[in-house]
Design a protein around this nucleic acid. Sequence first.
DNA 1: TAGGTAAGTCTCAAAAAGAGACCAGCGCTA
DNA 2: TAGCGCTGGTCTCTTTTTGAGACTTACCTA
Lengths: 135, 135
Amino acid sequence: MDGRIVNLRSKLEIYKAGNGGAKLADCPIRDVIQGISNKWSSLLIMALAEKPYRFGELRRLVPDISQRMLTQTLHDLQRDGYVHRQVFPTKPPSVEYSLTDLGRSMFGPLHQLMQWAELNHGAVREARAVFDAED
Amino acid sequence: MDGRIVNLRSKLEIYKAGNGGAKLADCPIRDVIQGISNKWSSLLIMALAEKPYRFGELRRLVPDISQRMLTQTLHDLQRDGYVHRQVFPTKPPSVEYSLTDLGRSMFGPLHQLMQWAELNHGAVREARAVFDAED
DNA sequence: TAGGTAAGTCTCAAAAAGAGACCAGCGCTA
DNA sequence: TAGCGCTGGTCTCTTTTTGAGACTTACCTA
């Protein structure tokens, strides 16, 4: 037991393989992870995991996201298959966003990471304080 | 069983609570998650989970990262306590980066997410193809 | 003596994100 | 009936972030 995760080496090999062949963009892990590792994606996924929300509701729920980035992030999540967008022909029309099965499936591991974050944010904040105290 | 994750509501409540009080930056989950959900962090954590690497080795391993972003991302990961930076007084001095205990602990859930990504990248790519085929 | 290596920093250009005005159609109210 | 706000966006402008690439200091090698 040295803390190393089994099977990791093989995954890194996939990554390294792309290295020489200029196929880095094809690395499956990077391709998928980078779609969700940006400032707003995981936050919106977390919100939609609770229940479906409408555009304006999400905007009020996450007040420091700009309307532009909310539109764009939801669009990207929809394109990657995590989010479903349904338009209701009310007046004015309303749009509801919800997680797809793929989105709910992905939220499993993401939620694990969030639980870790909640449990360990004290340690992280302390690490920052220690680091900032040094010159 | 409706696919909803237990305890999620309470976490969203924490988030919403910050809403009115303008304390969004204090949301522990956001604070921690946003430190690792950017283009390069998870990739470098993945590399360092395999074994310690030196600066130049990481640069060669991830050839499409700029030297500037490698420096900065490693610095941020070190500040958050995930990565340890050790300078060896060789000529010229060499610097080795490795995961701390906190970093290894965080890599557990992150690795779960990466496994999901590896298993489901087919579904994601297909979703993109379907989405792009529509006008 | 020229060139390579180490781990960066510095500057400038390009890309991404944020702020806020603007849009159309309808319902409500004054 | 004139204005107002609500809906879910788009458009433009500014600021921030990222990327590309030259430059640094000190040594080792050809």
